[in-house]
Simulated scan of single mutants.
Amino acid sequence: MSVSASPCPTSVIVTRLRTAGCVFAEDEAELLIAGAADPVELAVMVDRRVAGLPLEHVLGWAEFRGLRIAVDPGVFVPRRRTEFLVEQAVAAARPGAVVVDLCCGSGALGAALVAEVDRVELYAADIDPAAVRCARRNIAADRVFEGDLFAPLPTTLRGRIDVLIANTPYVPTGEIPLLPSEARIHEPRVALDGGSDGLDIQRRVTAAAPRWLAPGGRLLVETSERQAPHAVEVFRAAGLIPRVVESEEWYATVVTGTRPPDRMPDSLG
């Protein structure tokens, strides 16, 4: 339900948002008005947005590849550029594929894959309890696990994963203070901080991935253009066949690593 007649004119809301630094103030005002049940709620929502809370946290959802993804306060907001990562994963996933969304956050990537690929067998995991609670609202709750990377996943998935999509944190620790305040203050640091060079979590995922991927299975991660050459080295060292794909439209870089069909994991233990 939306506010049919607000005592606060739209122009006033737009001015408040623009003064607070909202670049797309008109669009945001429309979304806030549409999302509020009454003028009182609208006033609260505008105040929260003006105070710096991400729009998605104020609304309670984010648009991602045409889906409305529930996003709770304190949970990482899925970025539009990450739609390119999903695009690559969709291209890699056949109908009935076993897919894992690692570092799943709100579960947006997994939800998109389920929507776009027939009969996907999806599993997801995140270390952040708030993210897990949120993801369970967006994808099958019994397939979302809480814990560190692969640790909480069913061991029956080892050697069976066709597509492993991991939107790992990749901001170098020293660059965290340079992030916009919306991310720096309102999103969990565990979803942003990738260590000294931004690749710490990616290294851990990549090192373990060959034991979990099916022969010919692929690992896909988002990274920066600057980090991509280093990510390629990490993938190659793990025995994966690396490939870099870039999108000028989304200003996004994805590195994929394929487990060679004739190479068996060193250990499944």
Rank of each mutant, 00 (worst) to 15 (best):
P129L: 11
R259C: 03
P54I: 03
V132Y: 07
D38A: 11
A238H: 02
A92M: 10
G35V: 02
R133L: 14
N167C: 01
T155F: 04
F145P: 06
A91L: 09
A20T: 04
R133Y: 09
L149Y: 12
P177D: 13
P73D: 12
M1L: 13
G269W: 12
T253V: 10
I165M: 00
V44M: 07
Y251Q: 14
I161D: 00
V58D: 04
I161S: 03
Y123A: 06
N167T: 02
E87D: 13
E63I: 09
Q88A: 07
P260Q: 04
A125F: 08
E182R: 14
G21L: 10
W212D: 01
F84S: 04
V77D: 01
L178I: 02
E87P: 05
A70Y: 05
T15D: 13
C22I: 15
S106A: 15
A135S: 09
C134H: 12
D262K: 00
L31K: 06
A130T: 08
R16F: 02
F145Y: 15
I139R: 06
V234G: 02
F235K: 08
L17S: 04
V90P: 02
M264H: 05
L53V: 11
D118K: 11
A140Y: 06
A92H: 11
P261G: 01
P154A: 09
E26H: 12
L153M: 12
D197N: 15
P7V: 03
T10M: 12
C22E: 14
R218V: 15
L153K: 11
E249S: 13
G194L: 08
G159P: 02
S6I: 04
E249N: 04
G239F: 00
H230F: 04
T155Q: 12
D118P: 01
P229V: 11
G107V: 07
T168R: 00
V44C: 07
A20H: 06
I13S: 06
Q227Y: 03
W250E: 12
R203A: 13
A112Y: 02
P172S: 08
C134A: 08
E30T: 14
V86N: 01
C103M: 08
L157D: 06
I241A: 10
P265M: 02
D101T: 09
V99Q: 01
E248W: 07
D197V: 09
A191N: 09
I13Q: 05
C8Y: 09
R211P: 00
E87F: 05
V86K: 01
R218Y: 02
A62E: 00
P129C: 13
I241Y: 00
C22L: 12
D262H: 03
L53R: 05
T168E: 02
H230P: 00
S6N: 05
A29K: 03
L268K: 07
L42S: 06
G66S: 09
V132A: 06
I201V: 15
V3F: 06
E187R: 14
E225I: 01
D142N: 14
D118S: 14
P154L: 07
F84A: 07
D193Q: 15
R49M: 10
L192T: 12
R226G: 00
P9L: 07
R184K: 15
Y251W: 05
F84L: 10
P180N: 10
I241F: 03
I161Y: 02
G269A: 15
E63Q: 13
